[in-house]
């Protein structure tokens, strides 16, 4: 029970992850970030046993990914494309799913049906994209899973529904100590609710860690080159130069960086914590 919620080691597939390694601890909200085609959805599908890895390993709550459907008693997954039966009404989808989970949260179900304004008698194909997303979220949340895995959970939702969804996720983690792992393109959502982040590009992890730690470590630095004949250290290769001024990002400790640059004739003018957006763009460019 004390191991990580997700443990991925050298995971590879012909499309998607390529030597991907990361760990998500229990009891956190973790955001999986990456550009289109970076392998986020494929990684989630491998974790959920819907696709097979070519190499490497993945464990979900300590259980090898895809080894047993019983894992879905403890894990809830909301895929990118919300799979709802075309022949069922929204209320029937809830009833069908509820029947598989003895610990179903009836109170939460009633609350979410009201909050999300889910038309119980409407056939699933007639539901709007946003309502489908809300219904899928309801089906995932009410089963009282230990781990929620969500692929683009707010896709198709209006701003109000997005806020409500994010608030719900935080509430679930705070109230029941569950783990949430969600893939998204929305950096603001990760910054708003996540306390752990995994960034991937071309199927490989380029950064992972506690979000606060990442933001504290990662700094936006502005320097001035004091002499004209200074040769820039290799560590500043990706930095932007504007005349005598240099701007870039560093994961080095502020004092260490100042000492290193001083040795090269460069003085640090400003060093501020970077935003997640800045970290993300820098990592994507550098990787």
């Amino acid at each position: 029970m004390n191991g990580p919620a997700l443990e991925v080691r050298d995971l590879s597939k012909s499309y998607g992850p390529h030597g991907l390694t990361f760990t998500v601890p229990r009891g956190v909200i973790s955001g999986l970030l990456g550009p289109n085609g970076s392998g986020k959805t494929t990684t989630l599908r491998i974790l959920m046993g819907m696709a097979h890895a070519d190499a490497g390993s993945a464990r979900v709550l300590g259980v090898p990914a895809g080894s047993s459907h019983e894992i879905f008693r403890r894990v809830a997954f909301v895929p990118e494309v919300k799979d709802l039966y075309p022949f069922a009404r929204a209320g029937e989808m809830i009833r069908l799913t509820r029947g598989f989970f003895p610990n179903w949260d009836h109170e939460l179900e009633r609350r979410l049906v009201d909050t999300f304004a889910i038309p119980l008698r409407m056939k699933c194909p007639k539901l709007s994209k946003g309502t489908k997303a809300r219904l899928a979220l309801l089906l995932a949340l009410c089963r009282r899973a230990e781990l929620l895995v969500l692929d683009e959970p707010t896709d198709g939702l209006d701003p109000l529904a997005i806020e409500e969804t994010l608030r719900l996720l935080v509430e679930q983690v705070g109230g029941r100590g569950i783990t949430v792992f969600f893939a998204t393109h929305q950096l603001s959502e990760v910054e708003q609710i996540a306390d752990h982040v995994v960034m991937i590009k071309n199927g490989a992890c380029v950064m992972e860690g506690e979000l606060d730690d990442v933001k504290r470590r990662y700094r936006r630095v502005r320097c001035v080159v004091e002499a004209t004949d200074v040769e820039l250290p290799l560590s500043l290769a990706g930095w932007r130069r504007d005349g005598r001024f240099l701007t870039g990002f560093s994961a080095d400790d502020s004092d260490t960086l100042t000492r290193q640059l001083a040795g090269s004739g460069i003085a640090v003018l400003e060093s501020e914590p970077a935003t997640l957006k800045e970290v993300f763009f820098d990592r994507m460019e550098q990787a």
């Binding site: 459907h69 894992i71 809830a76 799979d83």
Partner: peptide, 21 residues
């Protein structure tokens, strides 16, 4: 029977439920 959904989709909708394919 399934409103023109394929056999794969029949299974797909139950993939996140604790039941064997």
């Amino acid at each position: 029977r399934s409103q023109a959904i394929s056999g794969h989709h029949v299974v797909e909708c139950t993939l996140t439920l604790p039941i064997a394919r």
